[in-house]
Amino acid sequence: MEAPQYVAARVQRALAEDARTHELGIRVDIRGDQLFLRGQVDGAEQRERLGAVAHETAPALHLHNEIKIVDIVEPGEDEHLD
């Protein structure tokens, strides 16, 4: 059986290199037959694409897509640099 560290590294590399995603900052963890994705992206479509690429790369694992979507809020207080 392949060491889970290599599978996680392969998934992380796919998320960065696959033309559908190109996402560098996603954490990939594997526990037994469970695959967890964590991080932040700016939209639901990108989260779904990341889940799809991860599943294609490690189809035997049960995917938990825990990636959060960043909410952009209005600019807050100015910072004065003096």
Partner: peptide, 21 residues
Amino acid sequence: IRVRNVALPVLGRAYGVYCLD
């Protein structure tokens, strides 16, 4: 020299505003 990381996920807001005297 002051350094500000303005990556959108770090700011969590549309943009930061920094005022120089």
